[in-house]
Amino acid sequence: MSEERAGETIICRCRDVTEEEIVEAIHQGYDTMELVKRKTKVGTGTCGGRTCLPLVQRILAREKGVNLTEIDLPRERAPIVPLPIRYVAGEEGRSSR
């Protein structure tokens, strides 16, 4: 990607996080997946990071000059897809058991 385009590229569609913001965070010292996620909120939207985290992984590897395999993905959290509370709560109208 050309230098001029950096910053216009949305990496996380759910949270509107751009490549420039991610690169800036990495250079501020938020240089692991876990830290980039906490700092920029990348990967914390409704898709759960499915689209963006592999991209962030590549950006991290590139910025740190390391192999892709050296960048760990953050721990996956339940639920796998956004889960409506009413499905988990059981029948409607049922309150605390």
Binding site: A78, P82, L83, P84, I85
Partner: peptide, 10 residues
């Protein structure tokens, strides 16, 4: 809140 969706759980 029954219509809200849980995004993460830790």
């Amino acid at each position: 809140l029954k219509y809200a969706r849980i995004l993460r759980h830790w």
